[in-house]
Design a protein around this nucleic acid. Structure first.
Length: 634
RNA sequence: GCCGGUGUAGCUCAGCUGGCAGAGCGAUUCCUUCGUAAGGAAUAGGCCGAGGGUUCAAAUCCCUCCACCGGCUCCA
């Protein structure tokens, strides 16, 4: 009995294949069958079914078809590689969201030669045929290839015979499924070459990974490449240069120089977060960046960071000093500086704390991955009975903040990993308090097993950058360990000492990463409240400079500039657009006479004869409400 | 850190089979005073990422290092 996507059920014989089922549904569908999805797994159309299952037929019209096509393209690459380099060893070559890759070993390759050879194989239109090979023979065939042998012994353990696919005279160990023939690949391209570790483990051999993509038609490939180019236009590093927001110099890799424009945005973000921290009852503190390494030994940070080479630390005057990689130890010491009553809790400290982490050189990336970063950090020391309430409050504010920016975020719940400190019970309590908070607030989230920080489970908020990479920004973490390790206490109603719980949280994460995300999110077209220059007054000619300054004076509590350069009005407008200034006010004889301005915005909307006061009233409201859209003319 | 790629004027890039360091934009000065996306002319601007080597001669070829870009691994 199989269940079809529309919910209907179909009685089939045991051992019937996906293709048989398709013919059962209709002869047309049978002929068009490329593969099947059985209980969620993409399988070859010749896969027989022996028990009840949900079955979906994959045809050229299905979403899964592209996966099959790209998988076939990976095989075309494999054949091309071995035609040109018979000694090359193939490891694995799966389809991905964007195309496919093949991990190879033991050869230096020429990309152009490979593409040419692949084109020949596509043009020859070889049939993709599934062949079943005796297990012993398969092992024998891969005597020289320990990667394929390992796949046979793990992924394909116990399979006999083993599934291979053949095109022309070339075969590859593979579960499939594939399209009918290599000729179905309408367009393909090899995109990048990089290193990858076998099975993703740094301890293993390093393989060469060749990335490519494939489509049914040339025009789809063109569109794909066009999308990639558009993503580059959104890249925060490019926009950061264009708008003169920040720079990262060769002499301070991974550390950001904020230029005046970028610093303006950062200060607005800081002011906003200070407001939110106040709402949440945080008291702002500031703690040293330079400390003796002793500080982090009891907390476990020293082991976690220093020994991985992630902490900047050095010997000085017979002591070891380091730059702080986190703020929590310092905040804990402020807490521990005096005795606290249960009545004082929760006690919350916030800090725009600059921390340094020696990230691997190959990992640095603009503002998104840096070595020196300032977190909008905060630690709430709470009684056990206050944990969940505190988390829920925090999560509510976080939701409000991300809504404010119109940012789409993914919530992740990260659980205990191998490097964790503390008992199972503590972790279980901490994890469930986070889970409960998410569920009570009605937030959807993914669970990532084993991904938490060493001291406690966390909620992470992830966003995607222009290139589709995921980055964690905001985070909430529950920590039973640091109060214990630093012996933090409060005096309870019973006059006994009790252990508080620390909740670590960053609302935006770090100003660096968050700004990088924002730049890409807005493509540099910042909302009025964040824009480095909010209004630019453009006089038609020199004769109108005086009036232009009068207008600017009336808007002096905004970031307003008068364009005084000796250009035509067309040029001044072009330049203002390039600088992504939200509002341009054009003033000439007409405006000067009537005390008005002609308003133009970034979307090229215009309105003439606008009284300056009316414009000012509007932008005051727009700024106060932190509207995402520039909407005087909307 | 590893693999591949890149590094030339403020920006975008050409020059790279060795033989005088280039263009466009921007900047400066002068002319123009302009009504909704680039007015004209002239001038300045370079340790060709850094160090070493090969050569009569190196931006160009070789080696080492640094930084950046993409990916792997790892994280706000």
């Amino acid at each position: 009995m199989v269940t079809l996507p529309d919910g209907s059920e179909l009685e089939v014989d045991a051992g019937a294949t996906v293709e048989d089922i398709a013919f059962e549904i209709g002869p047309g569908l049978g002929r068009d069958t490329v593969a099947g999805v059985v209980d969620g797994d993409l399988v070859d159309k010749t896969t027989p079914l022996y028990s009840d299952a949900r079955v979906e037929i994959v045809t050229a019209a299905s979403d899964e078809y592209l996966d099959c096509l790209r998988h076939t393209a990976a095989h075309v690459f494999g054949q091309a590689l071995q035609r040109l380099y018979p000694d090359a060893k193939l490891a694995i070559g799966p389809p991905t969201d964007e195309g496919f890759y093949y991990d190879i070993y033991g050869v230096e390759i020429d990309r152009d030669d490979l593409e040419a050879e692949m084109a020949d194989i596509v043009a020859a239109d070889y049939e993709m045929e599934r062949v079943l090979v005796d297990r012993a023979e398969a092992l024998d065939r891969y005597e020289e290839n320990r990667f394929k042998r390992e796949i046979l012994q793990n992924e394909a353990a116990g399979e006999d015979p083993v599934s291979f696919y053949r095109q022309d005279d070339w075969v590859d160990l593979c579960q499939g499924p594939h399209v009918e023939s290599t000729g179905e690949i309408g367009a393909f391209a090899l995109l990048d070459i990089s290193a990858a570790y076998w099975r993703g483990d740094e301890e293993n051999e390093q393989l060469t990974r060749v990335y490519g993509t494939a489509f049914e038609s040339e025009s789809e490939l063109e569109r794909f490449l066009e999308r990639r180019r558009e993503a580059e236009e959104r890249d925060h590093r490019k926009i950061g240069r264009e708008m003169d927001l920040f720079s990262v110099r060769d002499y301070s890799p991974g550390c950001v120089h904020y230029h005046p424009n970028g610093m303006t945005i950062r200060r607005e973000l800081e002011a906003y977060i200070r407001e939110k921290n106040e709402e949440l009852g945080y008291q702002e503190v500031w703690t040293p960046e330079l400390n003796k390494a002793e500080l982090w030994k009891p907390t476990g940070h020293y082991d976690a960071f220093k020994e991985e080479g992630e902490m900047f630390a050095w010997e000085q005057d017979d002591a070891e000093y380091g730059l702080k990689p986190m703020n929590c130890a310092n905040h804990a010491h402020i807490y521990g500086n005096e005795r606290h009553s249960y009545r004082d809790l929760p006690l919350k400290y916030s800090e725009f704390g600059t921390v340094y982490r020696n990230e691997q050189s190959g990992e640095l990336s603009g503002l998104l991955r840096v070595r020196g970063l300032t977190q909008d950090d905060g630690h709430a020391f709470v009684r056990p009975d206050q944990i969940e309430d505190e988390i829920r409050q925090t999560v509510r504010v976080i939701e409000e903040i991300y809504e404010q920016f119109d940012l789409e975020v993914l919530y992740k719940l990260e659980t205990r990993g191998d490097d964790a400190i503390g008992s199972d019970e503590i972790w279980e309590t901490a994890t469930s308090s986070l889970r409960n908070a998410l569920e009570h607030e009605g937030i959807e989230y993914d669970v990532e097993e084993g991904e938490a920080a060493f001291y406690g489970p966390k909620i992470g908020l992830d966003v995607r950058d222009a290139l589709g990479r995921e980055w964690t920004i905001g985070t909430v973490q529950v920590d039973f360990n640091i109060p214990r390790r630093l012996d933090l206490v409060y005096v309870g109603k019973d006059n006994e000492e009790h252990r508080p719980v620390a909740i670590h949280r960053a609302l935006l994460g770090s100003f660096e990463r968050f700004m990088g995300v924002l730049i890409e999110h807005f493509k540099g077209n910042f909302p009025l409240w964040l824009a480095p220059e909010q209004v630019r007054v453009l006089p038609i000619s020199k004769a109108h400079h005086e009036y232009a300054h009068e207008v600017a004076e009336k808007l002096s509590d905004f970031r307003v500039e008068v364009e005084a350069r000796d250009w035509t009005i067309g040029r001044k407008i072009a330049e203002a657009h390039e600088d992504r200034v939200p509002y341009m006010l054009i003033v000439g004889d007409d405006e000067a006479e009537s005390g008005t301005v002609s308003v133009r915005d970034r979307q090229e909307r215009e309105k003439n004869d606008v009284p300056v006061d009316a414009f000012r009233d509007h932008i005051e409201a727009e700024r106060a409400e932190k509207r995402t859209e520039v909407d005087f003319l909307g």
